[in-house]
Design a protein around this nucleic acid. Structure first.
Lengths: 187, 187
DNA sequence: TGTACATCAGTGAACGCGCGTTCACTGATGTAC
DNA sequence: TGTACATCAGTGAACGCGCGTTCACTGATGTAC
């Protein structure tokens, strides 16, 4: 059943969106090609007409997930707004729609080179964004590196622990922690 | 071929040590029962005489890995020493022998309840240790939460990116970042 | 202490299952005239 | 514009493979006498 070229392109987008969601929610290993295609409303056999391999899909899905983050972040005028949104319980509870770095950073080291490349590009871009919000310059770059570490670490930890109170406390403390490095803070 | 009770207990320890190493290095999903048993010098069939399931092994391996961290940390007299050791390239390059929270924190959210429980206990214990080094009290507890977030985030990121210079920069910046929260720092 | 036997830690083949990937086929789309 | 045919996006069965787990078996260990 051949479909319109337009429809095929739309299907490819749906596969990417499904992969970006499922990989972030379940990890690269636990989300299968079958599940991704089903989520996209297709059957698994057609997958290889769109992507040469699952690894290629993974790399493309990371870029797709990052692109979604860029749109979301455009709404944040300053670092405070970004941090509050990033360290919110709503973000913690929605890995499938959230930061790809926090969701897949731990897996990335063990993935194919293309996947690591895509994630590294996301890290680079996020650092640029943070450095810009910190006022630019070398000090801002340093601050961006430390801030991103705190943001990602807090989100990963808050998702890892099975104690809701501890999870909330991690987000709260990290919010205070990065505040210390914001513009106007001591040091 | 039955073996001595003593030898059997020693074999169980070897299985645990192998699991703690392989799970941290490759993740829970990518390290199989077969690989763990082979690393322990046994065949896979005997595994279920020691543990009821792979999930049970995973939980026990997390506790075992954490116990190893405690021994390692006993050598650090103050926060500076701990941070320098934690954010060292040698630690980044040895996930199999390093911090179990950083190595498996990202996977933990998707694991069986027992595994999350074991990792949460490790997080709790690490927070106690950090709070103690920060001088104790409520402020130290807050500082410990933020510090652990930065440490874990920096290690995860430094392992995720494929750019060695960026990886080193993340460790360096995070070292400075947590220094700001150390005793005697401004604020 | 020595003997006979029950116990059980470890072996290796086998199981069902889900995975990534391939492929013959279908039938609507795109194109040449 | 209409017709005939080549193209190809998607389908669903099938593949080889590795996984977690089970099990009949082995033979050294532990124990009862």
């Amino acid at each position: 059943m051949r479909v319109t070229r337009e429809k095929a392109a739309e299907n490819r987008e749906r596969i990417l969106a499904a992969a970006a969601r499922l990989f972030r929610r379940h990890g690269f290993g636990a989300a299968g090609v079958d599940a991704v295609m089903h989520e996209a409303g297709l059957t698994h056999g057609g997958f290889y007409g769109h992507f040469p391999s699952k690894d290629a899909l993974a790399a493309a899905a990371v870029r797709r997930a990052w692109a979604g983050s860029v749109e979301r972040q455009a709404a944040h005028a300053d670092l405070d707004a970004l941090v509050r949104s990033y360290l919110a319980p709503a973000h913690r509870d929605d890995p499938g729609g959230g930061c790809v770095i926090a969701a897949l950073g731990g897996d990335a080291a063990r993935q194919a080179p293309g996947v690591r490349r895509a994630l590294t590009e996301a890290v680079d871009a996020q650092l640029d964004r943070l450095a810009e919000l910190l006022g630019g310059g070398a000090a801002a770059r340093q601050g961006a590196l430390a801030t991103l570490s705190t943001l990602v670490g807090a989100l990963v930890l808050s998702r890892a622990v099975d104690d809701p109170a501890l999870s909330d406390a991690i987000l709260d403390a990290a919010r205070e922690g990065v505040g210390l490095r914001g513009p106007g803070a001591a040091q």
